[in-house]
Nucleic acid binder design. Structure first.
Lengths: 225, 225
DNA sequence: GTATGATTCAAACAAACGTTTGAAAGATAT
DNA sequence: ATATCTTTCAAACGTTTGTTTGAATCATAC
């Protein structure tokens, strides 16, 4: 009796997660049916409801499997920066690197499916589905708080609204770049042929830091208020 | 019941377009049903198929109604720049302004629904649906060609791959900023309270130009922060 | 070997989907 | 007023959706 190890048969479960991850990138959440998922995973149609409970719960599981680890690595990197600084103000570039570097590192992994997941995550930033948005917001709450707070302290002379907007811009730039990684962004048909994320990191980072350091708007001319 | 604020007695066709535009932003293409659309438009279920032929054709009509005009304004602005320059090289900042300024101008219009449309367009940059992506790529082909060509000529010393990536980044930054405009980006819960696109333009522009002018990756730099 | 719990399976469920139909209603022109 | 064309309408079409069911299969414990 009892003594049942908490780790059940993970075979079918993992195959479903992998298939769902891949299909969600390709067709979106609403565009991916249970039959597509279980078909691609060589599992029975009822397997998703048995292992996860519902389609929504499967979506959550797909994200949790990798997003939690990514965000913990981000927080750990920020922790390291702050202990190393020992009270001194942090360099904004290091903060940005801690956030986006960890993301691009995961996007560079094509073996374990990190790239697929990051493409899914990047797309989901703009997902309309209310349930998914809500879940993602909760999953990100702490990371946003910590990184925004760090940027506020690192740039005390910059209005917080400006920092918020620029962090917004940076996330958008990264998300769009990653989302189009493996899938060919048809939007710019003349896409750079070398889509190696290892070279994407320095490119994105210098762009982001250039934007972050740009002169504040209205510096020359006074705004309406 | 949800009252339908959109114009009461306009043409059925236009009421459908308005309702679809609004619902597509909120629920996505796959998440918006014909019954939702015709219900919100106070039209019969068969009206969409009668006026547009199919749901896919309706999606195209929603975009064509406003995107064609936007891209023509972009091209006209670029034409004006080039004739004014009379052979002299263009300033990259003017090129960027011609592209993104026209977009943000449309996003600032809350009366005629330009804002709603721009939020939809921004989201659609990351749309998985293959049919929608293909359509959007065709609709953008000429604009991308012209603006990238102009940037190549304006920055002859910068490798084209870098310009391509940075234009990519800029589009991503704009899209993410616009997509979260009316709809509250829950991702950053501490969203800037003033989401007035009229003030977004200078903010975005200085960020974009800062990124565009940033030192190329790999170049030796002396970062100041 | 038999009992017990976990997993798979084919089949069915009601609900929602996009689309089609044919008749009714409205509009327009002669 | 008649004929013609356009638009609306209620109803139904055949599929596909996510989920549930109950029996079959598998693994492990006693």
């Amino acid at each position: 009796m009892a003594a049942t190890p908490p780790a059940p048969n993970t075979d079918t479960r993992d195959r479903i997660l992998d298939a769902a991850e891949r299909l969600f990138v390709e067709h979106g959440f609403d565009g991916t049916s249970m039959r597509m998922i279980t078909g691609a995973a060589n599992a029975n149609l009822a397997a998703v409801n048995y292992h996860f409970g519902s389609k929504d719960a499967l979506v959550q599981a797909v994200f949790r499997r990798r997003l939690t680890a990514l965000n913990q690595r981000r927080l750990a990197a920020l922790d390291r920066l702050e202990t190393d600084a020992a009270g001194e103000p942090l360099k904004p570039s290091r903060i940005v690197e801690a956030f986006f570097g960890n993301a691009l590192e995961l996007a560079a992994d094509t073996e374990q499916g990190g790239r697929t997941f990051m493409r899914l995550l990047a797309r989901t930033y703009n997902e309309p589905n209310a349930f998914v948005r809500q879940f993602l917001a909760e999953e990100y709450a702490e990371v946003m708080d910590r990184f925004l707070g760090a940027l506020f302290r690192a740039l005390p002379e910059v209005p917080r609204a400006e920092i918020l907007w620029r962090f917004h811009f940076m996330i958008g730039a990264m998300a769009f770049a990653i989302a189009g990684l493996g899938g060919l962004s048809e939007l710019i048909d003349d896409l750079p042929k070398d889509d190696d994320p290892a070279r994407l990191l320095p490119r994105l980072m210098s762009f982001l830091l250039g934007g972050l350091r740009a002169p504040l708007p209205g510096a020359a001319t006074a705004p309406t208020n």
